[in-house]
Write a protein that binds this DNA or RNA. Structure first.
Length: 903
RNA sequence: GGGCAGUUGGCGCAGCGGUAGCGCGUCCGCCUCACACGCGGAAGGUCACAGGUUCAAAUCCUGUACUGCCCACCA
C-alpha cells in the first residue's frame, strides 16, 4: 500500500536516474518519424538555476514530452553557452575574491585557461540541476558554444561573411563600457532614467561679448567641444551663427553653427557639439566637418584636457569642472533633470560613447529575407503581437558591432604579419613580460589574413611572424548559429539533414532581437531555411506583485529550494498553470502549494482506486459499451478534457492544458465520479466500474505526464497491472486520443440536473446546520411528469450525494410543514426539518431567492418585449431566453408560496 | 516622441459578442472508513472611465486615465 501522503523526494531521485539510464530522452533519428526538435537556449556556464530557467525549460520539456507521446521523433538538444562578458565578469570576481588577483595579474593565456578549467569542472553542473527538474534532455551529448565543432561553425560564418564583405572593419562612435572595458553592440545597451542635473554654461564671445548660454548634462566633455549648434530657424541666435565663442576653462575658440538636430524648445536652444562623446553630436560633426577630440579614455579617465583635470576620473572631473565654472562666474544655473542614461546590460555602469575602430557586420542584406519570412507569415510568433516589433527592429537595423575587447570568447579569426602590418599594430608588454598585440588599426595599414589557425606564413612577404587579432567575438555571434551548429553545421551531417530546421524556439521576449532575430537571419543566410517556424515567447517570472526578482530586493525564489520543499512536479505545475504566451508570471510560494495540493489529490485518488483493486485481476480493458449515466457522463468529460489538453499543447497554451486537466481530475472525476462509484463498488458492477476508474485515471496521468512527469510515472507504474499498456515508461506510451464517440450531451445535461438538485439540498443542509450523520428526506416536485424523469431515474445519485435516505418524487406534491425550500430550474425542493428550521433564516434566504427570480423575470421579459430582439436574434437565443423566463417564473411561484407558508 | 500589453470580487489570474469564472484568502459546518495538502456550503464583482457599433458588449470600435514593457539622437 502506498503511504498516506505523496513524498516526492525519493520518487524523483529514483525516476530521474531510471530515465537517464533507460536513455529515454535520446532521439532515434528515425527517418520514418516526423522529427520534433527544440534546441535549448543554452544556459551560461556560470549561471545557477533560477526561476527563469525553471519556467522556459519546463515549457520546452512539456512540448518535447508531449510530442514524443504523439508519436514523433522528439529531440531536445542540450548545450551551454560560454557567455562572453558575463562569464568573464564572474570569473574575474571570483579571482579577486579568492586570490586577490585581477585578470592582468594572470595574463591573457592563463586567464583563459582558468575559465576553461572552470568550464571543465563546473560547466555541466547546471545539467545536474536540470535533471532534478525532470527535464527530458539527452545528456549523453552536450554541446558548448566554444567546443571545437561550434568554433568551426563560427569560423565558417566569419569567413563567408568576410568574403561577401558583410564583415568589415570601421572606425566610428561605439558604445563603450568602461567597467567591462569593451565595445558593445547597440542592443546590449539599456536605457535607465537617472535623476541628474542640467547645467547652464556661458561661452563668452571671442569678441568679448556675452556670447551664448548652453545647457548640458555632461560638463566634463566641454574640453572636447567642436562647436555650438543652434537651430537654423531660431530667431534668437540668427545673427550669431558663424561667430566664435570661447570654451570656458579650456579657452579655445569654437564656431557657432546651425543644425536641424537642435530642438528649439529645449534648454536655451543652444547645444554644445562634442563629436567624440555623443552620438547625436557625432552626426552633427560629420555634417559640418568638425574635428573630433577625445577627452575621455577607454578607462574613463580624462585626457587631452586642461592640465588640472588630466588623469581624473570622468565623474570627479564633472564635479570639479562645475565647481570651477561656478568660480569663474560661467555657471549660469543648474536644475534637476531626469535624463536617460545608457548603461551596460551586463554590469549596468554608464556607457561612454567612444571613437574606435571595431569589427562590424553589415546587416541590411541579411535582414531582408528575415523581414520577408515574418511578413509572409512563414515565421510565426506566439503570441502574434511580437511580429511588428520584430519587423520594426529589422527594418531599422544597424550594423552589428561584433568585436569585444575581452579575453573570453571566440577569438577573431584574423591574423596580421608583423612585418607587413607594422604601422597598424600596437603592442604592449603585459605584467608577465610578454609582448601583446593590443590595438589594430586598418586605417594605419594593418592587413588582415582570415584563417582559423595560425597561417604558416604571410601571403605577402612570406614572413613567419604572425599575430592574431586581440579581440573576441560577441557571444551572440556564436549564439546566432546555435540551431545549426548543434547539428554540426557547416558539415553536412545526418543530424543536420534530419533535425534541421527545428520545430519551435522557446525563449524570453527580452532576447527577441539579441538572439532570435539573429538566428533567423543566419539560418536563412546559410541554409535558405528558417531555423524554426514557430517562436514561442515566454514571460518573465516575477514576484507576487509583478516586481522583477533580484537579490537586492530580496524577493528571489530559488527553484531548487522549492522543489526540495514541495516537489518538482508542484513547481512545474505551478508555473504551467500560469503559462500564457508572453505573459509575465507573478510567482509566490502560494502558487506552489496549490500545485502541491493537486499532486496530493492525484496521489490519493490513485491510492483509493488501488485500495479497491483488491481481489481484481488485471488488466482491465476499457468497457466498449456503457449504460450507466455516470459512466457515459465521465467518458464525455474525460474525452473533452483530453481534446482541450491536446489543443493547449498545439497552441502553446499550456495554462489551458494544465487548468483543464486539473479541473477534470479534481472537479469531475474525484468529486462526482468516484463518489458515485463508491456505491457501485458493493455490487456486481464493481469490475466494470473499476475498469472505468483505472483506465480514465491512467489516461489522465498520461495526459498530465508531460507536465508533471514524476508523480504520474510513479503512480502509473502501480496501476500498470490493471491496464492494457506496453512499455515501462509513460513517455513510451501514446498520448490519449480524443474520442468523439464518447461525447454525450444528453448525459451531461442529465448530470447537470442531478448536480443542481444535489447542490440545492446540500446548501439547505449547510445553512441549517444539519449534522452530517443525520439523513434527511426530501420532496422533489414539479408541474408535470416530464420535468421529473431525470431525478426519478437517478434518485439514487441524489440520495447518495446529498445524504438523503428518502426522496419523494411526484407531480404537484404538497409542501410539508417545517420545511426548507429551494428551486432548481423547474423542480421544487422541499426538505422537512422539524426542529431544525430557523424561520428568520429561512425567510431571509427565500427573500433573496425572490429578488433573484424577480430580476430574472424582468430582464427576460424586457428582452422578449423588444421587437428587434425577436427580429434579429438567432432562434436558439430566443428559445433560451423563453426557457429562462419560464424557469424564473416557476422559481418565483415556488418561493412566493414558501414565503406565504412561513407567514 | 512612437509602439505594444494590462486595468475583472481582499490578492493573483482566466474568459474575449448572449449580462461573469478559477486559485488563494475570508466566513460557517464537518477528522464522512482516498486525501484536513481534505469534504460540504456561504459571503464577495454595475468586468478603470466616457462615448459609439449591435437586438445583445468584460468581450468589437474611438477616446481618456492610470500601470508595465519595448523602441527612439531632446543636450
Amino acid at each position: 500500500m502506498l503511504p498516506k501522503a505523496y513524498e516526492p523526494q525519493e520518487v524523483e531521485q529514483k525516476l530521474a536516474e531510471k530515465w537517464q539510464n533507460a536513455k529515454l530522452f535520446a532521439a532515434k533519428a528515425d527517418k520514418n518519424k516526423k522529427p520534433f526538435v527544440i534546441v535549448i537556449p543554452p544556459p551560461n556556464i556560470t549561471g545557477a538555476l533560477h526561476m527563469g530557467h525553471a519556467s522556459t525549460n519546463t515549457l520546452q520539456d512539456v512540448l518535447i514530452r508531449a510530442h514524443r507521446m504523439f508519436g514523433e521523433d522528439a529531440y531536445w538538444v542540450p548545450g551551454t553557452d560560454h557567455g562572453g562578458i558575463a562569464t568573464q565578469n564572474v570569473i574575474e570576481k571570483k579571482l579577486a575574491k579568492e586570490e586577490h588577483k585581477s585578470r592582468h595579474d594572470l595574463g591573457r593565456e592563463a586567464f583563459v585557461k582558468t575559465v576553461w578549467d572552470w568550464y571543465n569542472e563546473c560547466g555541466n553542473a547546471i545539467f545536474n540541476q536540470f535533471r532534478k527538474m525532470g527535464w527530458s534532455l539527452d545528456l549523453s551529448d552536450i554541446r558548448f558554444t566554444m567546443d571545437e565543432k561550434r568554433a568551426k561553425a563560427v569560423y565558417e560564418c566569419f569567413r563567408q561573411w568576410w568574403e561577401k564583405k558583410y564583415i568589415y572593419r570601421g572606425k566610428r562612435l561605439i558604445n563603450w563600457c568602461v567597467r567591462c572595458s569593451t565595445a558593445l553592440s547597440d542592443i546590449e545597451v539599456e536605457h535607465e532614467q537617472h535623476a541628474g542635473k542640467l547645467w547652464y554654461l556661458r561661452y563668452k564671445g571671442e569678441d568679448g561679448s556675452d556670447g551664448i548660454v548652453i545647457a548640458t548634462t555632461r560638463p566634463e566633455t566641454i574640453y572636447a567641444d567642436a562647436a555650438i549648434a543652434v537651430n537654423p530657424k531660431d530667431e534668437r541666435y540668427k545673427n550669431m551663427v558663424g561667430k566664435k565663442v570661447i570654451i570656458p576653462l579650456a579657452n579655445r575658440a569654437i564656431p557657432i553653427i546651425a543644425d536641424e538636430a537642435v530642438e528649439l524648445g529645449f534648454g536655451t536652444g543652444a547645444l554644445k557639439i562634442t563629436p567624440a562623446h555623443d552620438a547625436t553630436d557625432y552626426e552633427v560633426g560629420q555634417r559640418h566637418n568638425l574635428p573630433i577630440m577625445t577627452v575621455i579614455s577607454d578607462k574613463g579617465k580624462m585626457i587631452n584636457c586642461p592640465e588640472k583635470y588630466l588623469g581624473m576620473d570622468r565623474e570627479l572631473c564633472r564635479k570639479e569642472t562645475v565647481k570651477d565654472l561656478d568660480a569663474a562666474g560661467l555657471l549660469v544655473k543648474e536644475e534637476k533633470y531626469n535624463n536617460a542614461v545608457s548603461t551596460c546590460y551586463r554590469c549596468h555602469s554608464a556607457i561612454e560613447p567612444f571613437m574606435s575602430e571595431q569589427w562590424f557586420v553589415k546587416m541590411d542584406e541579411l535582414a531582408k529575407p528575415a523581414i520577408e519570412a515574418a511578413e509572409s507569415g512563414e515565421l510565426q510568433f506566439h503570441p502574434a503581437n511580437w511580429k511588428n516589433p520584430f519587423l520594426n527592429w529589422l527594418k531599422n537595423i544597424q550594423d552589428w558591432c561584433i568585436s569585444r575587447q575581452i579575453w573570453w570568447g571566440h577569438r577573431i579569426p584574423v591574423w596580421y604579419c608583423r612585418h607587413c602590418s607594422e604601422k597598424g599594430l600596437t603592442f604592449a608588454t603585459d605584467q608577465q613580460g610578454h609582448e601583446q598585440l593590443t590595438k589594430v588599426s586598418f586605417e594605419d595599414g594593418a592587413k588582415p589574413i582570415v584563417s582559423y589557425e595560425k597561417p604558416e606564413k604571410c601571403p605577402i612577404c612570406g614572413g613567419h611572424d604572425l599575430v592574431q587579432d586581440p579581440d573576441v567575438l560577441d557571444t551572440w555571434f556564436s549564439s546566432a548559429l546555435w540551431p545549426m551548429s548543434v547539428f554540426g553545421w557547416p558539415e553536412k551531417t545526418p543530424d543536420m539533414e534530419h533535425f534541421y530546421p527545428t520545430s519551435v524556439m522557446v525563449t524570453g521576449y527580452e532576447i527577441l532581437y539579441l538572439w532570435v532575430a539573429r538566428m533567423v537571419m543566419t539560418g536563412l543566410a546559410f541554409t535558405g531555411k528558417l531555423p524554426f517556424k514557430d517562436v514561442y515567447l515566454n514571460g518573465i517570472v516575477r514576484d507576487k506583485h509583478g516586481q522583477k526578482m533580484s537579490k537586492s530586493k530580496g524577493n528571489v525564489i530559488d527553484p531548487l529550494d522549492m522543489t526540495a520543499k514541495y516537489g518538482t512536479d508542484a513547481v512545474r505545475f505551478s508555473l504551467l498553470m500560469q503559462a500564457v504566451p508572453s505573459k509575465d508570471i507573478p510567482y509566490s510560494e502560494d502558487s506552489i502549494t496549490g500545485a502541491r495540493n493537486f499532486c496530493n489529490k492525484i496521489y490519493n485518488a490513485s491510492r483509493f482506486i488501488l485500495m479497491n483493486m483488491e481481489g481484481i485481476k488485471g488488466p482491465l480493458a476499457m468497457p466498449t459499451e456503457v449504460t450507466e449515466l455516470a459512466d457515459k457522463w465521465i467518458l464525455d468529460r474525460f474525452t473533452n478534457a483530453i481534446k482541450t489538453a491536446r489543443e493547449g499543447i498545439l497552441k502553446y497554451n499550456l495554462a489551458l492544458t494544465a487548468n483543464t486537466l486539473y479541473h477534470f481530475l479534481w472537479g469531475d472525476f474525484c468529486d462526482w465520479y468516484v463518489e458515485l462509484a463508491k456505491q457501485r463498488f458493493q455490487t456486481q458492477e464493481k469490475e466494470k466500474v473499476m475498469a472505468l476508474c483505472v483506465n480514465i485515471l491512467y489516461g489522465t496521468l498520461k495526459a498530465l505526464h508531460p507536465l508533471i512527469p514524476f508523480i504520474t510515472e510513479e503512480i502509473a507504474s502501480s496501476l500498470r497491472p490493471y491496464v492494457q499498456e506496453e512499455g515501462e515508461f509513460l513517455l513510451q506510451q501514446a498520448y490519449p486520443e480524443f474520442k468523439p464517440e464518447w461525447c454525450n450531451k444528453e448525459a451531461v445535461r442529465k448530470m447537470e440536473i442531478i448536480q443542481g438538485v444535489t447542490r440545492e439540498i446540500r446548501t439547505i443542509r449547510a445553512q441549517f446546520n444539519v449534522p452530517p450523520a443525520l439523513k434527511i428526506t426530501a420532496v422533489l416536485t414539479a408541474k408535470d411528469e416530464a420535468e421529473l424523469t431525470v431525478v426519478k431515474e437517478y434518485e439514487g445519485y441524489i440520495k447518495l450525494m446529498a445524504k438523503a435516505d428518502k426522496l419523494d418524487i411526484g407531480v404537484n406534491l404538497a409542501k410539508p410543514k417545517q420545511t426548507a425550500t429551494a428551486v432548481f430550474e423547474n423542480t421544487a425542493i422541499y426538505v422537512p426539518l422539524t426542529g431544525l428550521i430557523d424561520f428568520e433564516k429561512e425567510k431571509k434566504r427565500l427573500e433573496k431567492d425572490l429578488a433573484v427570480a424577480k430580476a430574472n423575470i424582468a430582464s427576460r421579459e424586457a428582452r422578449l418585449a423588444q421587437e428587434n430582439f425577436i427580429k434579429h436574434a438567432p432562434k436558439e437565443q430566443i428559445e433560451k431566453t423563453k426557457d429562462e423566463l419560464a424557469a424564473a417564473k416557476v422559481a418565483l411561484a415556488q418561493v412566493t408560496a414558501s414565503l406565504e407558508d412561513l407567514a
